[in-house]
Every structure is written in structure tokens, then in C-alpha cells.
Design a protein around this nucleic acid. Structure first.
Lengths: 189, 189
DNA sequence: TCGATTTTGTTTATTAATCAACATATGTGA
DNA sequence: TCACATATGTTGATTAATAAACAAAATCGA
């Protein structure tokens, strides 16, 4: 792809993310973003229809990175479920400022919705991948695991990460293993 | 000016400076520079005729910053000659890696020549500014002060800055004050 | 509330950057 | 020494980014 596109997108997204950390979303203007990104205002509009589109793509980028982190590498299962989960918590820790802002913002509902949707999808994939069948209702089970995991993550982030990422991965894994052989809603063991 | 020009120049110059620090000038290629700067190779050629032009402009940029540092601020002489000289040594310290490379490189003669020329010009300006007249030969005096100052700077840089910049400024100032009321070849008192 | 300022979103002409292709030059290893 | 690879410098067609200008909407301050 034309490297200009990549550079502009990166500069705009970086500027937006930076502004997100230091002020409320409602206070951020396209002007500010363009100025900080050092691109023309028109360039912003050529990549994003408006600031909400920018927000959504920003969320999408971050959540993609989040869920990438918990995919076992390639075909070799050299990385265990616990390792992958640990990597995920490490990633969250490194980007805690961003995720904290997203979870605590009153005006941003898109983030929670998208996180939940992606988590549900991820849990379903893990169930399929591990060939898990259950007596109970599958739909409900998926919702159960997804919400449980998000709840733990949200609590950990918004409470300034009181435990290490290793410990969190351990505990979450242990909780999930109690019920089914679903070793992790995000990863396979 | 079109911000694209500024951004491209900056990216290219940054990449070149970075490469200068980690390898010899002769080993640096335009391809490398373009790659590291993340610009098309043609863009490099649209700003610089060849790698020697790039080197010269790089030297020019750095030396301009060097001599900017020792100009007293604006019209108010709130910053004394010593302070300005101190700022100059501080700047040299911060960019010691670059200046050391330049001074020690066998293949780069342009840097020493340009440094000497700018130093001579600076000494002449300081003489004029302070209205200094002397019995001796002015030309020779200018050469004397210019070479003396460069010699001290070169020794300090290539010997890993054995004294603090404050001390160096002090000592150099004191040496120059012994002869004329030329308080500093780089600054006015 | 009202006037002023800022922001938004869009358009247009212009320009810099891009990619691909090329011939030439330089250098490198067998 | 001679292929082979890499680097140089240039060209032309295409595209993304730019600045400037604009009307409309939103925000702000008095």
C-alpha cells in the first residue's frame, strides 16, 4: 500500500490516542487531532468520516491487538494457554491508561459493546476449538464466560492492577477450569 | 511552507544522522536512508542531489544550531557571555556523539572546514560588536582565537568531556579575557 | 439572549510523494 | 577475471496530501 496512507493513518491515530489519554472524548476536536498529527484537516476527513468513526477505528485497533495477544502462535502449541493469557494481561497492563479511560468514560459506550461482542466471539471459537459439548444451554454458557472474563479484566484495570499479570492469568485460568475443560475463554491450553 | 516538505526533510535528516552515529559515512547508502526515513528513494533525490549534499546540509544544520546557542538572546543582554558559552558547551555535550564522529572521521573533511569558517566569521562578528581595535594584525588575531577555541572544543569532545560544561566555559572565557576584551569569540559579554 | 468565535464538513486547484521501470555504475564473491 | 547483486540517478504516470476558501453548525462569553 502507498506508504503515505499508512503514515497519515498512524499519525492521526497516534494523535487521537494521545489526546484520549489527556482529556475527555467530547472535548477532542478534529482540528486538534490534525494539528497534533501534523497533517491537514482534510487528510483526517479523507480517512475518517467523522470523529466517531475515528473513535470506532481506534477501539477496533486496540481490541484487535488485545485479542491477537491471546491467540496461540501459529500451529505449534508451544505457547500454552496460561502463557497466552499472561501475555494478554501484560498487554493490558502496558496499555492500562487507555483501557482505563475507555472503561471509565461515560460517553463511550461503543468500547464496552465491542469488547463484549469480541469476547463472545472468542469464547465461541474456543469452545469449538476444544470440541466442548455441554448439557446446559450453549448460548447462556458463552455469555457466562464472556461476562465473567470481562468483569475480572475491568475490575483489575479500574482498580489500578492490584495483582501481577502472572497471578491474574493463573487465577482466571483456575476459575475457568473448574467448570468445563474450557481452559481459557481467550485461548486454548 | 508545505508541511510535506518539512516532514520529508526532517525524516530524511533524522535517518541520516542516526545512521551516521552507528556506521561510517562511506558505508551509508541512499537506499538505507530512504528505508529508515520511510520515504520513497525518489523523495530523497528531490531534496538532495546526492549523499554528499545530504552530508553538507546535515553539517550545516548542526553547526547552525551550535552557533545559535551562543548568540545572546534578542536585545536584552540578560544572558551573559558566560551563560551563552555554557549553553554552547551544554549543547555540545548533548550532541557529543555526533560531533565526535565528525571530528574523528577520516573521510569527512567538510565538517572541519565548515566549522573553522563559521568560527572565523563568529570571531570577526564579536570583534566588531565589541569595537575591539588592536595594534596587532587583525586577520592573524581572528585566526588565533578561532583555532584556539576549536582546539579546546575538539580536545574536550574527543576526550569524552573530562570536565563539566560549566567549568569549560569558565576556563575558556578566562583564557580569552587575558588578551583583549574579547570576552568570548562566540558570544558577547 | 445575542454576537463572536470556533468547529465542522466539503470543494477545488496545486503540489509533493509514490511506485515502477529503466540504464548505468559500483562493488562483491566465486 | 567475470557473473551477479546491489546502489545510483533519472523518468513519467498516478495518487495522496496540501492550502485556501466556503457555508453551516456548534460553542462560548458577555
Amino acid at each position: 500500500m502507498d506508504r503515505r496512507i499508512e503514515k497519515s493513518r498512524q499519525a492521526i491515530m497516534d494523535a487521537f490516542t494521545k489526546l484520549m489519554l489527556e482529556k475527555d472524548f467530547e472535548k477532542i476536536t478534529i482540528n486538534e487531532i490534525a494539528e497534533l498529527a501534523n497533517v491537514n484537516r482534510g487528510t483526517v476527513y479523507s480517512h475518517y468520516v467523522d470523529i466517531f468513526d475515528l473513535l470506532n477505528q481506534c477501539i477496533e485497533n486496540h481490541l484487535n491487538k488485545l485479542f491477537e495477544n491471546c491467540q496461540p502462535r501459529g500451529n505449534d502449541s508451544s505457547i500454552s494457554g496460561k502463557d497466552a493469557l499472561c501475555k494478554t494481561f501484560n498487554y493490558l497492563e502496558q496499555n492500562a491508561f487507555f483501557y482505563s479511560k475507555m472503561l471509565m468514560s461515560k460517553s463511550i459506550t461503543a468500547f464496552r459493546n465491542r469488547l463484549h461482542a469480541l469476547m463472545v466471539k472468542s469464547v465461541e471459537e474456543q469452545l469449538d476449538m476444544n470440541g466442548i459439548t455441554t448439557d446446559g444451554n450453549r448460548e447462556i454458557m458463552v455469555q457466562y464466560f464472556a461476562s465473567a472474563t470481562i468483569g475480572v479484566i475491568e475490575w483489575w484495570i479500574t482498580n489500578s492492577m492490584p495483582y501481577s499479570s502472572e497471578y491474574m492469568a493463573e487465577q482466571l485460568l483456575s476459575l475457568m477450569e473448574r467448570y468445563q475443560n474450557v481452559t481459557a475463554p481467550l485461548t486454548r491450553s
